[in-house]
Write a protein that binds this DNA or RNA. Structure first.
Lengths: 139, 139
DNA sequence: CTAAACCTTCCCGTCATGGGAAGGTCAATG
DNA sequence: CATTGACCTTCCCATGACGGGAAGGTTTAG
């Protein structure tokens, strides 16, 4: 199966497949006489695995580890679980950061008239105006 | 004020200041006779503005627009508010994606024994096992 | 005067991905 | 059988927002 079919069959773009090969995430596939890549069913399964793992936000490096655990029949599930939990923690941290940004901006937005006038608490905040806009107790 | 002091005064690294200049986010500062950058108070205010905007997740391109709005005394606050709302929407979308990832992984993790045994619903899921692990109604 | 601590520019690496050029191969159609 | 279009190959470049570090000039403290 050439790279185009493999791409269709797995949802991983041809570009990505070549990239994954180049960084050692997948083993180089077989080649035909004319030097076309030739993917086996097993290769396709690896690609599907990678695609799913990417969709869960794992980095290529993490997936590399996950792939070897997958291939190791004697892996302790402990290791996999630890990776998953670490990744969840990373995600949660990033989510929290972004939540803080969004919340701060929502606050500022709420206080901005959003009309033709130039007065704008959002810009005031960015400019470091001490009189920022958080409807809270301003003593 | 040279770039080191400016960096200390604004919390923007010297590298970043040069970068912002190179991409046209800030105007090139004055230079001393010996070609050192020489920042004015106004430059520092711009840098602080940028720092705050970056901390709210705005891209350099968006900040470029925000800076011109800030400098324009006749800006309609409508434009600023629109940018803020768009950015909040972007953040929310990304947060939602990451939440979905984290939730899915938490589900899988919960079902993984995490011990010495090799059986692992996380790997099964990545491998596309139809018998995935979502404690739900499996008919 | 010298050495440390600055500054300058320039180039490379990150991470996962897309774009595109130049050139070889395969399949279907005239 | 030849052509054409749709593939494939490798190689290089770009993204965004930085950081690292080299080579060389400047300032400042001792």
């Amino acid at each position: 199966m050439n790279i185009g079919k493999a791409s269709l069959a797995t949802g991983v773009s041809a570009k990505m497949i070549r990239y994954y090969e180049s960084v050692g995430l997948i083993r180089p596939s077989e080649r035909t006489e004319s030097n076309y890549r030739d993917f086996s069913e097993r290769d396709l399964n690896d690609l599907r695995f990678i695609r799913r793992a990417r969709s869960l936000g794992f980095s290529v490096e993490e997936i590399s580890r996950l792939l070897s655990l997958w291939r190791d029949r004697n892996r302790p599930s402990r290791e996999v679980k630890a990776m998953a939990e670490k990744h969840v923690a990373d995600l949660d941290a990033r989510i929290k950061e972004m939540q803080a940004m969004a919340d701060a901006l929502r606050d500022l937005s709420r206080c901005c008239a959003g009309d033709d006038r130039p007065d704008c608490p959002i810009l005031s905040d960015l400019a470091g105006s001490p009189a920022a806009a958080s409807q809270g107790v301003t003593p």
